[in-house]
């Protein structure tokens, strides 16, 4: 069975842009299941329901789960080793920097476990750890103005674990929805260019890690 695993960040980008409606038809086109781990469900629903802020978004995600647009993976996911390796990958003054949370690693571990077609994550650090850990080291050094050392043994082990993981973002999911015509209903008095610009900027300003240049490049590509 084909699967895509979503991290909290990608679901947040979709719900805060009121774009959860694309998930059901997108899932039908994909002919598979969109999974989230239990810890992601907790971050998306349980936690915000305790407060006033983003309570509505939590209710909307809850409805999407109820409708089986997202399926919560209820079996146990072993994250211990992967979490330890990622949080002991970078060192400053001989001390490791904890860079990721358990929930984030759980989504990645689930994607590895299910051999998913893709792992959707809008969050920059997780994406860098998977795709280019040396680049993250450079970012840390630039910000800290200190030498950051890397545990090469762990880096190679992580690389090996994630070698088949394909990272996408909410951006790519929304653009697929756009290409399938799922968002054509918004093309009233607006051009395709305006719609694309609105979609990509909406995702960007609500936290998806996508640069201005990427927005421009993707808009040109789609037109």
């Amino acid at each position: 069975m084909k699967t895509i695993v979503l991290d909290t960040s990608s679901v947040i980008s979709l719900v805060t842009n009121n774009l959860l409606e694309i998930i059901k038809p997108l899932k039908e086109k994909f002919k598979g299941t969109f999974y989230i781990p239990e810890s992601v469900e907790y971050e998306l629903i349980d936690k915000p329901l305790e407060t006033k802020m983003f309570k509505l978004e939590a209710i909307m995600v809850s409805k999407a789960i109820e409708d089986k647009d997202f399926v919560v993976y209820e079996e146990s996911i072993d994250v211990g080793s992967l979490l330890h390796k990622i949080n002991n990958l970078y060192f400053v003054n001989g001390k490791p920097i904890s860079i990721v949370s358990k929930a984030e690693v759980e989504a990645l571990a689930l994607a590895i476990k299910l051999e998913s077609s893709a792992y959707a994550v809008d969050e920059r650090t997780m994406r860098l750890v998977i795709e280019d850990p040396m680049r993250l080291k450079k970012i840390q050094e630039n910000k800290l103005h200190m030498k950051v050392t890397i545990n090469y043994e762990f880096m190679n082990e992580i690389k090996n674990l994630v070698k088949n993981v394909k990272v996408i973002r909410s951006t790519e999911l929304v653009l697929m929805a756009y290409e399938f015509g799922l968002l054509d209903k918004y093309l009233i008095n607006v051009s395709r260019e305006q719609l694309l610009d609105a979609l990509l900027w909406g995702l960007k300003i609500r936290g998806c890690s996508i640069s201005n240049e990427e927005v421009e490049s993707l808009t040109d590509f789609e037109l």
């Binding site: 895509i4 450079k138 970012i139 697929m176 890690s209 640069s211 590509f221």
Partner: peptide
């Protein structure tokens, strides 16, 4: 999100990869 070092894969390449997935 606009820091240059964030870019790991060309966005067009990622989009083409997503099309393959679907």
């Amino acid at each position: 999100s606009d820091v240059k070092d964030n870019l790991t894969i060309d966005p067009i390449k990622r989009m083409k990869m997503t099309r393959e997935i679907f």
